[in-house]
């Protein structure tokens, strides 16, 4: 009886997941569809006469975009960790006066719409001369991740046992030494979580790329797809093939780091 009920739930779960992920399936299906079948009615539900044309044109035209996205993503991770880890340590363990206000400001910072930041950055970047450059884009993308990073690090580092830090102090380690040799290694999990999200957000960013890098010669993959869509001669298998490839980081993240992802989603909302 119980086993039967469990199977029934599994079946329902499979159907629900199928409905939810249908758009993802459709993206993959279209990426393999031949150009002449694209406007067929009814559409082919399976890529039986599949083609790799879409992927071929990705290789031909989108590799530079992908390269830029990887560099921007890694740069964003580096900058986010550089700013976020010491701040998390200070707020969690050194608890300075005014730390509460800072945490509050970070929480507020998370709520500012990206499009408004983009407009401000545009004005600043124009004057400084970093419009349409990769460093400029890294800085802008890092604003998506830094407040999140500090909040996560503060939460996780609060859980580091006081005895561990005391032991380091007894051994004569200063604050910097304690941070580098004890806090950072112990916080590996939260560093992974933050790095994954920072990379993913930078990789996915469209707002900053579309405003601050629209005239650049080195553009990320999100703009690569956008130019494709804007093209009059819409090659949808190529667009969807690019979309599939642009989804790889998200998929990898989900497969290898599932528990970190769930932790990241809930950390900001529930804990604190």
């Amino acid at each position: 009886m119980k086993a039967a009920r469990s199977w029934w739930k599994t079946a329902t779960g499979l159907v629900l997941t199928g409905v939810m992920l249908f758009p993802v399936y459709w993206m993959i299906n279209v990426s393999f569809t031949r150009e002449q079948d694209m406007r067929k009615s009814p559409p082919s539900w399976f890529p039986l006469d599949g083609t790799l044309d879409g992927y071929r044109s990705v290789l031909d035209r989108q590799l530079p975009y992908l390269g830029v996205s990887v560099i921007v993503g890694l740069g964003t991770v580096a900058l986010t960790l550089l700013v976020g880890t010491p701040a998390g340590y200070a707020l969690a363990k050194l608890r300075p006066r005014g730390g509460g206000v800072l945490s509050f400001l970070l929480l507020i910072a998370q709520m500012i719409p990206g499009i408004i930041m983009a407009m401000g950055f545009y004005a600043v970047f124009l004057n400084v001369g970093v419009l349409n450059t990769i460093p400029g884009l890294i800085v802008a993308d890092s604003t998506l991740a830094v407040p999140f990073a500090v909040l996560i690090f503060t939460t996780f580092m609060s859980g580091i046992p006081e005895e561990l830090l005391q032991a380091a102090r007894v051994d004569g380690a200063g604050a910097l030494r304690t941070f580098w040799s004890v806090v950072v290694p112990v916080s590996r999990n939260s560093i992974i979580t933050v790095s994954l999200f920072a990379f993913l957000w930078a990789w996915s960013d469209f707002v900053f790329a579309g405003t601050l890098d629209q005239g650049g010669s080195l553009q990320p993959i999100t703009l690569g797809i956008y130019h494709y869509i804007g093209n009059n001669n819409q090659q949808w298998n190529a667009i969807m093939a690019t979309a599939v490839i642009a989804s790889i980081p998200a998929t990898v993240l989900l497969v290898i780091a599932q528990r970190y992802v769930a932790a990241g989603v809930t950390a900001g909302a529930v804990k604190n």
């Binding site: 939810m20 992920l21 758009p23 993802v24 993206m27 993913l200 990789w203 996915s204 469209f206 999100t222 797809i225 956008y226 979309a243 642009a246 989804s247 998200a250 998929t251 993240l253 989900l254 992802v261 989603v265």
Partner: peptide, 9 residues
């Protein structure tokens, strides 16, 4: 998955 995909995708 839908939450993790880039919005442009």
């Amino acid at each position: 998955v839908p939450w993790l995909l880039p919005l442009i995708v």
